[in-house]
Amino acid sequence: MKPIKDTKLTDQRDTSSPWDESAIEFISSSHEINAWITSITKTDLIKDTNPFKSSSTLEIYGVLKYTKIVFINIDFQFSGCGIGDFSYFINGGVLSENDDNLMILSISLNQHADFLINNIIKSHKTALDMGKTCSDIRFFKNPGDGEITHAERLNKYTRESRYPITGLVTWDTLESPNLARWARPYVDTAFSMENAPTNPFQQPELTLQEESLVRRR
């Protein structure tokens, strides 16, 4: 399963309303939420006690794969049964006037699922090591979940409804960013036989390891 193709982002939010109705409709009508993760910060706190006490917090931020700017934050504070849930809130200009009325898609994952944390961090680190600026993540949900009620629409900053996350996918692809298009997996959307060589041994980037092995013999 491959990440969906990137779509061009344009900030076309309706500033007259704090809730982006079209984005909410897009999310609620779909069975999945696709996003780019752009930043991960892990903070570890160690207290000088006997014995030592330590705690960690993880801050994950990203952008929804959509034709408008919709920011995402991910935390690990979900304490119920299952993978997690999602909801919306309005930032409300807490940090500066420029941040006023930013609708945030908030995803909370199970606080005891360490493997989720490890998978997300590993996937993002691999993407950065490959020269990318973000990593892909996909959350699964039930179609219809995420709709906004009339009562919640009147609320300027928060929504009470939370909807279940039924699954998620991360990608951990080890591949050189300089790999020729013909040498990519043939199922990749970037794959192309254009300018492909008749003899792969003519490609230095593919024969470097082979030549090294020959010199060792």
Rank of each mutant, 00 (worst) to 15 (best):
I4P: 10
I4S: 12
L9T: 11
Q12C: 12
Q12G: 05
R13E: 02
R13C: 02
R13D: 07
D14V: 11
T15P: 02
S17C: 11
P18H: 12
W19K: 02
D20M: 11
E21P: 05
A23E: 10
I24P: 08
E25A: 13
E25H: 08
I27R: 05
S29T: 15
S29I: 06
S30G: 07
H31Q: 05
E32N: 14
I33E: 01
N34A: 13
D44T: 14
D44K: 14
L45Y: 15
I46S: 06
I46R: 04
S54D: 04
L58N: 07
Y61W: 01
G62N: 05
L64H: 08
K65E: 05
K65Y: 01
I69F: 13
F71G: 01
I72R: 00
F76V: 04
Q77F: 12
Q77V: 08
G82W: 07
D85T: 01
F86S: 00
Y88C: 05
Y88P: 07
F89T: 04
N91Y: 02
G92I: 01
G93M: 00
G93N: 04
G93F: 01
L95E: 06
L95N: 03
N98P: 00
L102D: 03
M103I: 08
L105C: 05
L109N: 07
Q111N: 10
A113I: 04
L116K: 00
I117M: 06
N119T: 06
N119A: 09
I120H: 05
K122M: 13
K122S: 15
K125S: 12
K125E: 14
T126D: 09
A127L: 03
D129G: 00
M130P: 01
M130K: 14
T133K: 08
C134G: 01
C134R: 12
C134K: 10
S135A: 15
S135E: 07
R138M: 14
F140S: 13
P143H: 08
G144Y: 09
D145V: 01
D145Y: 01
G146F: 13
G146M: 08
E147Q: 13
I148S: 06
T149D: 10
H150F: 02
E152V: 08
R153L: 10
K156S: 00
Y157D: 09
R159H: 13
S161V: 06
I165F: 04
G167I: 09
V169A: 11
W171R: 04
W171I: 10
D172Y: 03
D172A: 06
T173N: 10
T173D: 12
L174Y: 04
E175I: 15
E175H: 05
E175F: 09
R181Y: 06
W182G: 00
D188L: 02
D188K: 06
D188P: 03
T189A: 15
A190N: 12
N195P: 00
A196W: 08
P197G: 07
T198G: 15
P200Y: 11
P204K: 08
L206Y: 09
L208A: 15
L208K: 13
Q209E: 03
Q209G: 02
E211V: 01
E211T: 00
L213G: 03
V214I: 14
R215N: 11
R215A: 11
